[in-house]
């Protein structure tokens, strides 16, 4: 995959458009959080969204599965437009997985039950089949032995890997990551990133809000920089890090790369 990226300057991995965001705006009350967002994401793309806190990057990806409502413009996901229509929202959420900063596992359910909940209730899958799939994904995130424990008994890194497995059990077409490593101890960040890198290698369409620039360099095919609710700059990682166009991007990069 990496080789392909370097040989092909084109940002798209496939021609099929998965997400299309057109002149989208969002307000919290009077506060204009997202301004004129235009973004196309093709199938198989790995996009990293970065920017200072409060720049609207989390809000942007939360709009894609309608955890936040946009007030102007259009969002199309997998050929379906996001509107107030509950049917559309449910249809899109089935195909879009999300991983949160604070994991948001269900503490009253075991790891396995966390993973089978949505396949059983949303996809109407038989319990045995859902459990088989869940176990295979837990194997993939390298914690098959924790299946019968409760989330409260796991470390942060393990919980986040369960959360990833839980999303994958729905067999989503797109995965959204909202600062998946920000709440983790340094020694646990790597185990989560490794899982994400593997996922990217398998061709998953991913949008990650993260400050892990190493991850952006290895995996992303496009990096988006946001500030003040706008997309300031987007480019492939090589160009983005070595040759940032906007002064605001240069300032941001100089601040985080100094560390």
């Amino acid at each position: 995959m990496n080789d392909q990226d370097q040989s092909a300057p084109s940002l798209s991995v496939s021609d099929e458009v998965m997400i299309r965001i057109n002149q989208m705006h969002k307000w919290y009350g009077q506060f204009h959080v997202l301004k004129d967002i235009n973004l196309n994401v093709n199938s198989g793309e790995r996009i990293v969204v970065c920017g200072p806190s409060g720049s609207g990057k989390s809000t942007l990806i939360r709009c894609i599965n309608r955890l936040e409502e946009h007030q102007k413009g259009e969002i199309w996901v997998d050929g379906i437009e996001l509107t107030g229509d509950l049917k559309h929202i449910e249809q899109i959420r089935r195909e879009v997985g999300m991983v949160f900063q604070h994991f948001n596992l269900f503490p009253h359910l075991t790891v396995l039950e966390n993973c089978t909940l949505a396949p059983i209730w949303v996809r109407k899958m038989p319990k045995a089949e859902a459990e088989d799939i869940a176990r295979s994904y837990l194997e993939r995130v390298k914690i098959p032995e924790q299946a019968d424990k409760y989330p409260g008994q796991l470390s942060g890194g393990q919980q986040q890997r369960v959360a990833i497995a839980r999303s994958l059990c729905m067999n989503p077409k797109i995965m959204l990551f909202d600062e998946p490593t920000s709440a983790l101890d340094p020694e646990m960040i790597k185990e989560v990133l490794d899982v994400m890198i593997e996922l990217a290698r398998d061709g998953m369409t991913m949008i990650c809000v993260t400050h892990e620039m190493g991850f952006a360099k290895t995996v992303a095919n496009r990096v988006i920089f946001m500030d003040g609710g706008e997309i300031i700059e987007q480019n492939e990682p090589q160009e983005f890090f070595n040759n940032p166009q906007s002064p605001r991007t240069r300032e941001f990069l100089s601040q985080i790369l100094l560390h």
Partner: peptide
């Protein structure tokens, strides 16, 4: 976050209330 996680998975309102 609990409701958001349930929503993001596609659970309907009554399902997320009852199950989560």
């Amino acid at each position: 976050g609990q409701v958001e996680a349930a929503d993001a998975m596609g659970l309907k309102y009554w399902q997320s209330m009852r199950l989560v």
